[in-house]
Design a protein around this nucleic acid. Structure first.
Lengths: 185, 185, 185, 185
DNA sequence: TATGAATGAGTCTTCATTCAT
DNA sequence: GATGAATGAAGACTCATTCAT
């Protein structure tokens, strides 16, 4: 059992357990009991540390957002590393797609944002972040188009067993990054 | 109350109520009670007509799939009408995006497929359908890339109040439809 | 489906189905639906022919009593055939015990009688019948003692996979049949 | 209401209520509601303390088994007290038969064992126990025959208002206890 | 006469939340 | 501060019985 004398640790353990539970079974499957069991914490602790189950859910989503932040930082650095070239981005993203847990976690933010308007900022975090990163190498419009496409790719990947074809990714990114406002006819 | 002695009508009413309920609050919020109330049907009717809540949910998803089918048929015709030109497709799709209920319904298929592998065929229906339609005017790869991008656009639209910019849509579609395998370096 | 134009046949089919259902799952597992399904009769028929489920249950128990009657007649004849000798009775009874469905059916009468006083006559039918048969070859007291013992044997058999040992049966019957009032000290 | 904050007491109260309910109306009549009402406990408590109704039923049957154990211990001592003489056993058993609640409780084990093979050990407990006790004063075969007969007597008593005749009991026990393997012809 | 649609009462069960300790 | 006992509301589901047709 998580130590009684480490409030912060317990809190983290519960949030992490909530995230895992939501990834595994969806947001609505979250219950105090399951979190307590998974976090190896007494049942009472879940309500002692969080005012309500919704609070706990929100904390879990917040944790996912923070993880997304971290990923975006890494992604930004890696994109710099390959000088923003489409082939490089395609390779980086292919690697990103291989961690399905991560994708599922992100998709939780979408679910949440769709049914609770106040959670939309969480859901938009990823697209906005990617758009910003790509703007260093393409027009704002091209960057956004690419980010939106990549979101579609994530969706597609979550609904297929096979990984997304890297060549297709490269092709699409190349096409989209190269566009610019003047292309608008 | 839905007229008694009209089994088919009652069934339809309940399925429709289930769809509405899921659109409003997500698949997991579906309960017999809410469906009964929305369909103006006694509680017992929901279990009399459907062996289980899962059955009812499945019927609702099936209904959405059928609606998607209908939309794909219309879309196919409209795309033919504009000769598959990107500007035309962008215009058509902008119109499509304006019906948020429809988008939310479709997104239900995605989320359902994410947590229940057996429902994946439902979830892939739309992308596969769009890809097939676009193949008449672009390489298979370009068609799929465009379809995946459009899925991303749907997601983006659902998470924003403002409608998706049609010019951006046109730009991206133009870029993606024009790609072909030989572009792959 | 049992013919619509044979009311008596339908009735019999439902009663028989009820008996089978009760033998298989106990009296309390009886439902209109299961009877209708087993008897291949529309659901409505079960309430059309029987005022209530309890009525149907009673009819089923009555049918078992009638079967017991038939068995008692056979038993009486067979006992006459072996002149009431204990070895003969033991052999006959061993054969009787081999049909577990029959035993389970009889035990239903016991259950029923235990919880519904008005059904006690049904439950006592078997012991009284056997007692009467044996009285031709032993004192009333010996006959009753033997019948009670045989009831214990039925119980024992239903609770064991292995058949009851015929030698033990012969020994006990011999001992009990030979007793007489004057043995009472 | 059973005092809160006395888990063991509440548990016992519910088990006892379940036993009473089953004695009164049979195993299959057991419901959470009736137990809660009889034990003067809120409905939720019944499922908080027992994972399922079957669990509660099992606990009740277990409690009956324990009571049977206690009775067997007493019976063993009393039988020793009368030196295993048939008249003594008959007298003891007559007293035993006078407590109908006890008989009904024991019969629950029989009926349970009949429909659920995994509960057979419970059902056989009494016969095996009595057989073992009597073996100190008779051959194993005679002991078993007597025990089986006594089971029949219990059944008979439960199905009759009048108590079982002690003289008949004495006669039968005398006859059965005196038998021995060599009597088998 | 016969049937299957219909429903409301009642079953088991889960769980967020409260609160005594 | 911490916990686990406690409970009431709500959920899925079953089914005897009623009744329109």
């Amino acid at each position: 059992m998580t130590s009684r004398r480490d409030p912060e640790g317990r809190r983290r353990a519960m949030v992490e357990a909530a995230v895992q539970e939501m990834i595994a079974n969806g947001s609505s499957a979250l219950t105090h009991r399951r979190v307590a069991e998974r976090a190896r914490v007494p049942l009472g602790a879940t309500t002692y540390y969080f005012d309500s189950l919704d609070d706990l859910r929100a904390a879990a989503l917040q944790a996912i957002v923070e993880q997304v932040d971290e990923e975006l930082r890494e992604f930004a650095e890696d994109v710099r590393g390959c000088d923003g070239r489409p082939e490089g981005i395609a390779a980086l993203f292919t690697a990103y797609l291989s961690d399905r847990e991560r994708l599922r976690a992100e998709s939780l933010l979408y679910f949440a944002g769709m049914h609770k308007p106040e959670l939309r900022p969480f859901a938009q975090h990823w697209v906005l972040g990617v758009t910003e990163i790509l703007q260093a190498y393409a027009s704002p419009e091209a960057a956004q188009a690419t980010a939106v496409y990549l979101d579609g790719v994530i969706l597609h990947t979550l609904l297929n067993d096979r990984p997304f074809d890297e060549a297709a990714l490269r092709m699409a990114i190349t096409a989209l990054m190269g566009t610019s406002p003047k292309d608008r006819t």
